[in-house]
Amino acid sequence: MSAILAIEDVTVRFGGLTAVNKFSMAVQKGAIHALIGPNGAGKSTVFNCISRIYQPSEGRITLNGEDISKLKSHSMAGRGVARSFQNLELFNELTVLENVMLGAYSRCDTTFLQRLTPRPKQTLEQAEEILESTGLKNYRNTKASGLDFGHQKLLEVARALAISPQLLLLDEPAAGLRSREIERLDELLTSLNKTKGITILLVEHVMQLVMSISDRISVLSFGEKIAEGTPTEVKNHPRVIEAYLGTKEAGRG
């Protein structure tokens, strides 16, 4: 296996605050990799660096060996990197189907003249397929703003899939979902990974999901990586237990 995404010594500073400090991580092709850590550990900041919303102060990020540290946000979709947002970023006035079809934007035609011509049929077919697989089919013509929270989260994933990603970044996809919905998400992500070979990197707090689907887990605390390994290794790592539960001394106080 080779690394699809490599983060090397990335540091992000906001003014005087160091949000992420010399963080390195490699995501293997075909893996489901989770990035966990307490609130404010810098997980979303790392995500925002990968999807080119933030500029790292130091360090390098490569995708399939290509340095992406200088690229613009919009050029990631064309490279097969899709993401979902923790605080939903949907096209609220559009229907579920239209949201997914817009997800395929980067994959249609590139020349200026082709840009003026209407969208091909296959985009529609592909969008219908995605709705089917994500279980959103019954909401096809509902406006995104009219969906309940769980389905809105799912729609973020569906739209990301329309990019036909090789790497899918999911920022807390299970947050706020009910346990039945989390089980369905678990099945969906596993099947995307196994049948379509999509590499998944997710930030998540719901341990039930993380432990069940991840091949590998990296743990961030206060902007630094404190552990990395398989779910079992990470679960028993003393620094992880400390970061999540506090030290014995602190617990007594």
Binding site: I53, K72, S73, H74, N92, Y105
Partner: peptide, 16 residues
């Protein structure tokens, strides 16, 4: 799309 959600537009590959 840009009129509706700028961040989501960039996400799907629109050059803002």
């Amino acid at each position: 799309a840009v009129g509706m959600n700028r961040r989501a537009s960039q996400l799907v590959g629109i050059n803002l």
